[in-house]
Amino acid sequence: MRKVITVFMTMALAAGPAFPAGATEIAEILSNPDEWAGRDIEVTGELIGDFGRHSGAFWLQMNDGPYANNPLLETGLLLGSNVGITLRVPPELFEQIAAVEQPGGYRWRGPLVHAIGEFRYHDPDRTGETYIAVTGLELVEPGYHLPSEATGPWGAIGVILAAVAGWVLLQHARQRRRERRLED
């Protein structure tokens, strides 16, 4: 069962709606970075890879491309490359999610989160890195296991092939020994 846990917080404790409707697609942000630089933006996507912690914050990759909602292992659909951006999340915001979640990866669809923050494009404070400095984070859907792929006959065929190779090599070795004995 996919329960929805909301751990919404805002760092700035600003008044008004923290998550205005409508997240921006990461691809749109990345293809027009100048337009979005320095602006507060909202993104929704899957946390994937690792939960890194350094420089006083958590560093997470968020993918909102086609696989965030349609994991390949679940749907079998190939929908192109991943589209992702880094989120820099203050510990107090992140720890509530980290307590219950792990990032996405093989056979694991990571948690879907909704983030709001400032898009830092080529941030001089981080020697030119690009990321979103998150001020609000909401868990939209927890991560879950993806189905394992069917193994198929390939392993068995491989074992047979390896056995045949071993037998052939043995025959050759015997033949060479016979030839050497005859030569001697």
């Binding site: 193994t151 198929g152 390939w154 392993g155 065929i157 491989g158 074992v159 190779a165």
Partner: peptide, 16 residues
């Protein structure tokens, strides 16, 4: 197991 079987197949084919 899925990836393992694909490696076994590749190894078997290479050796064969």
């Amino acid at each position: 197991w899925h990836s393992a079987s694909s490696f076994i197949f590749m190894i078997g084919l290479a050796l064969a």
